[in-house]
Simulated scan of single mutants.
Amino acid sequence: MNEPINIHREQDKILAQSFSVTRAQSFSVTRDNHDWLLELGKRQGDSRVLSARHEIAQGLIKQFRPSLEEGLTLPWAETHSSVRFMPAKVSIWSGPTFSGKTAFLRQLMLHAIKLKQRVLFVSLEEEPIDVWREFICMASLTRSPKPALIEWALDTFDEQLYVFDSTEMIDPTVLMGIVRFAVERFGITQVVIDSLMRLNLRIDDYEGQREMGNMLGRLARISQSHIHLIAHPRKTANSRESMDLYDIRGAQDIVAQADLVLTLERIHEAPFGSVLKLWKQRGDTNWIGQFDLAYDKTSRQLKMHSFDEPQRFLCDQAYIDGGEVQQLEL
């Protein structure tokens, strides 16, 4: 197993130490005439059994709960009261191949950037240049943007969108360390990991899944970022059948520990085209249900209604004459 990451903050030391714990770890307790359970409990009980006077409980006086304004919304105003991606939480995204999971997460992250959040997009399935290209096309509303419009997009993304450079299988511990570094160095608030299949973790390694879920949760809490993980579903006999939580491949323990679980599916022979379904949402919002969405082919965005215009994520001037700045005649 990899060595723990050398991080100086006390919470990060705890996180790094948790990465190095072996699965065979056990406690040595002598069972004699004494109350051995009491002795075992004393080792951690004094520091972990909290009274109402503890600083954690007392902190509720200052702030009873985080404001929902701190959470990222979906890109459409009609959904803002239903879904919130709060800091220090984990979301699992799934859906069949070509359902548009990665594309929609690009759209969601462009929405986050427009709200002045900072994004780390970890694509383990695409080259970095392809990731940048797709972000630019979606933001510019065309598959063939002019150089000036590309420059507008890159200026908008500067110090707000960061792309991870790797298309190889990567150890989950290493990736968690890189995410922690990016949060500390660049102030990242939203992290996308695409996808679970590209992590060096066997589908049938259920203990590994449990550890991965624990790591994601601890990392989100310590970093105060929201982590979005894409997990592909198992192949079914009929790819057009609706999926459920049990179809998410190799991720049952991770799904159980996640704060939000969402699926995106293309609906064939339906007027709306795509369905975004929220299966699980912990917290004050606590809404579950689905949104029927329309697909815009040119921008590759999802919309609430087919007649809606695609969203603009750049300033209005960027869309005038392909981003070309007009010189005023004197």
Rank of each mutant, 00 (worst) to 15 (best):
A270R: 15
Q326D: 10
L37V: 12
Q117F: 03
P172F: 01
I178T: 10
Q44F: 07
G217S: 14
K277M: 06
R48Q: 11
I227F: 13
F135Y: 11
R185Q: 09
I5D: 05
G283S: 03
R9N: 07
M138S: 02
P87G: 13
P310C: 10
D165H: 08
G187D: 00
A256Q: 06
T73C: 08
L276G: 08
P128E: 15
Q17C: 08
A270S: 13
L314D: 01
H226E: 02
P233E: 05
S274K: 15
S223L: 07
V21D: 03
E127D: 14
S99H: 06
C315K: 14
H228I: 09
R240D: 15
V163N: 04
G187L: 04
T285N: 09
H8V: 12
L328G: 07
T97G: 06
V49F: 06
V192N: 01
P87V: 07
P145G: 06
S67K: 00
Q311W: 10
R282A: 12
F64R: 01
E69W: 04
S140Y: 04
R31N: 11
S26L: 13
S26V: 15
D165K: 13
R185M: 11
Q25A: 05
I203W: 00
I248H: 02
A256M: 05
F181R: 06
Q257C: 02
G273P: 07
E126S: 15
M304N: 11
L110W: 03
E309R: 10
F135L: 14
L154D: 06
D46M: 01
S195W: 13
S242T: 14
I193W: 00
S239M: 13
L262R: 08
S51Y: 02
N238A: 03
K42F: 03
P4H: 06
G95L: 10
